[in-house]
């Protein structure tokens, strides 16, 4: 791809991404008093993350079984209130061990 086209498309991408983040962030500066609307924005973080995580997490690695194992480890460690980093590392490690084991089992 030639550089002119790259820079045009990059500029469109960057400007659109910036505006979609900045405009509502700057326009909605007042605290929302309405209890229902307030509740909506309290729930949104968790519904967004939940929708993004499942079932996408199952397909984020080479093997669904390994990913499911990683997911259960993530649920368990989070339930035990471990920090974000510990949960993230535990998830990767469990997934790696499982996919490695599956890989070995498959090649026997």
């Amino acid at each position: 791809m030639d550089n002119t086209r790259f820079f045009i498309l990059l500029a469109v991408m960057v400007i659109t991404t910036y505006l979609i983040r900045a405009v509502p962030f700057i326009l909605f500066r007042k605290k929302i008093e309405n209890r229902k609307i307030k509740a909506f924005f309290d729930y949104i973080p968790y519904t967004v993350l939940s929708a993004m995580t499942f079932p996408a997490i199952l397909y984020s690695t080479d093997s669904i079984i390994a990913a499911a194992g990683g997911f259960f480890v993530a649920l368990f460690l989070s339930y035990k209130k471990k920090s974000l980093l510990v949960v993230a590392i535990g998830t990767c490690l469990a997934t790696f061990i499982l996919s490695f084991a599956l890989h070995m089992a498959g090649s026997l």
């Binding site: 995580t53 997490i57 949960v87 993230a88 998830t91």
Partner: peptide
């Protein structure tokens, strides 16, 4: 197998935000 196991970490972090 290493690269693919690293990719799941971000979802683990999402789980750690929602579950508690």
């Amino acid at each position: 197998v290493v690269a693919s196991s690293l990719a799941i970490g971000i979802y683990g972090m999402f789980v750690a935000i929602v579950v508690p």
